[in-house]
């Protein structure tokens, strides 16, 4: 068993089976690097994850510890000078399983918790969790207006009116798609 500690003061500790915790590529790499140390006696502090978020992470990895490993694809870095055919290699379709639908903090008042979960999944490199969280957010904002999206994501419009008008003109063609 591995102990994970949140960034709270005092930290909150969770004990997780090693198989489950290794769904996090970050922690798995760390454990492999520290082979020989008695990691079961050494709590692993996670400086970017608070207790409620860590609790969700633990719950998710315990639920999915027996899932087949996801197919790893090299990450494509976007670069205008790169003339590769990466554009044909689109992301596979992601379907959110029923258990995960209930698991994700999807109420509007839990929105920030969802964003914290995405941040933690990204930091801990738990790709399947990141995928379903991002898919949920994408489904939520799909078909909505720009103003609605800004409101849902708590984002401010940082364009000047002139810049916004120019950009609107630039992407007007997209309405016909």
């Amino acid at each position: 068993m591995i102990q994970l500690c949140s960034n709270d003061d005092p930290p909150v500790s969770f004990t997780v089976p090693r198989k489950a915790v290794e769904l996090s590529k970050t922690i798995k790499t760390m454990l492999e690097d520290l082979e020989g140390f008695d990691m079961e006696q050494t709590p692993i502090p996670l400086p970017n994850v608070d207790a409620p978020t860590l609790e969700l992470i633990v719950k998710w990895v315990e639920q999915h510890q027996d899932d087949p490993p996801p197919v790893e694809k090299p990450r494509v870095e976007d670069d205008d000078s790169d003339d590769s055919d990466a554009d044909d290699d689109q992301e596979p379709e992601v379907v959110i399983p029923e258990w995960d639908k209930k698991f994700l903090p999807t109420d509007d008042e839990q929105k920030n918790q969802l964003f914290k979960l995405l941040n933690a999944a990204n930091y801990l490199e738990i790709k399947p969790l990141l995928d379903i969280g991002c898919k949920y957010v994408a489904d939520k904002i799909s078909g909505q207006t720009v103003e609605w999206v800004r409101d849902y994501l708590n984002m401010e419009n940082d364009y000047t009116p002139e810049e916004e008008a120019k950009l609107k003109e630039e992407i007007a063609w997209a309405e016909g798609l």
């Binding site: 720009v146 800004r150 309405e175 798609l177």
Partner: peptide, 15 residues
């Protein structure tokens, strides 16, 4: 990446 193409273009207006 999970959004339809036309929605991605519109998202440029968000920020």
């Amino acid at each position: 990446r999970f959004l339809p193409a036309h929605q991605v273009v519109k998202m440029r207006l968000v920020s």
